[in-house]
Amino acid sequence: MSDTTAATQHAEHAAHPHVNYTKIFVALCVCTALSWVADEAGGWGLIDSKRMIAVIVLAIAVAKAQYVMRYFMHLKFEGKWKYVLLLPTTILACGIPLALAPDIGLHYYRPTTPQTRVEIAPPTELSPTAAPHESAKGSAPEHGGDH
């Protein structure tokens, strides 16, 4: 590590306004406690909707992430380069969830219609009841056979 880089670092550090990290830590602890309260609120009967609790808890997580990124990671005080570096990766990161969502997330497959191609024997004359049964099973490949 050269003296030049150390000096640059010191200069950068000096450029950062002073942050009261203890206050940020307390805020993070309060947020964690609020998550617990939101979780327990369902049990106390204060919030009926599970979806609402999930939204509250995730919103608190986002708030905590904001504190950590802005103050602990100093992103609040960094230049515009932070967007150049982080936005593309964040957008690309959404690729896999978005790619999986139509096939997996939208309830294509159920235990009764598995994601496998069912090999169906041709109906025989000796089993007249087999036809409707097989035609019902035959719908499975329509959902999942090609995946």
Binding site: L86, T89, T90, L92, A93, C94, I96, P97, L100, A101, I104, G105, L106, H107, Y108, Y109
Partner: peptide, 18 residues
């Protein structure tokens, strides 16, 4: 690392609902 963990977390969420 953002892409690495988002892949896991995103896949978990998708599987959770699916």
């Amino acid at each position: 690392e953002i892409m690495f963990f988002t892949a896991f977390i995103g896949t978990y969420i998708v599987l959770y609902f699916g």
